[in-house]
Design a protein around this nucleic acid. Structure first.
Lengths: 123, 123
DNA sequence: TTATTAGTTTGTCAGTTAGCAAAATATAAA
DNA sequence: TTTATATTTTGCTAACTGACAAACTAATAA
């Protein structure tokens, strides 16, 4: 029961569901790409990813300075089916899909550089 | 997306998941039976059932003084499959099953009478 | 080594939520 | 009508959660 509750609680947040939906289509996303998608502060995103990981819904691997996230290999099949059908025509997810195409069309290096620039301009 | 989030938030509470699991096996349960199962204060249970209903996971009908709850007719199929498999051998749910057998073995009238007695003794 | 940078951890604040008691509502029984 | 009773609503408190900034870690680059 505890395992299930960790999952339901992880899914009780819109940002985290959006990440799961994104990973359902994109195989792997690195931290800065998720930051770009959600447009939340880096620490907040890090927290969200930690919650998803400790719930067993997401796994990660580290490559150099970057952390790549993916759906857990044993992501519950029925859960995925439910999410897919429930989100099939959700506007927010469709918008995310467009943003994601942009995000993955450039290298993570370029993406990080752009983010840094934006952050500096915001001061 | 909003519909989905209402569901995930409704399921992000152990008591509410236990109720859904109970209704997955018992077709209909009245309010006092749910109180008996969860052993929470009546107002608390009423709140939980309201959350489940406004999420569209549970429906209710009123019969005299009693309110009977059931899983919503259009309860998402894949969600149900996920919950069933995830809770198949959860200890808490197995314990609930035994309690439920007791609960449904007497009439709601008798159950309410017992609850009233217990409440008076607690003063 | 020193500087840079992707990500995490910590501290704090605002908003949300589960819990109960008490009051209110609705329906049946006397 | 009055009483009893099953459930809901309201008001309150304590615990939890998401957000950010600032400090910290880990790993590459100069």
């Amino acid at each position: 029961m505890n395992d299930l509750m960790n999952m339901t609680k992880a899914l009780a947040d819109e940002s985290r569901v959006r990440v799961v939906a994104a990973l359902s289509r994109h195989e792997e996303l690195c931290g800065c790409q998720v930051v770009e998608l959600l447009r939340l502060a880096t620490p907040t995103v890090s927290r969200h990813m930690a919650v998803l990981q400790s719930a067993g819904l997401v796994q990660s691997r580290k490559e150099g300075r970057w952390v790549y996230y993916a759906l857990a290999k044993d992501f519950p099949v029925h859960l995925r089916a439910w999410l897919d059908s429930a989100l099939a025509d959700a506007e927010e997810i469709q918008a995310d899909r467009l943003v994601l195409e942009e995000i993955v069309s450039c290298t993570v290096q370029d993406l990080c550089r752009d983010q840094k620039k934006r952050k500096e301009e915001a001061l």
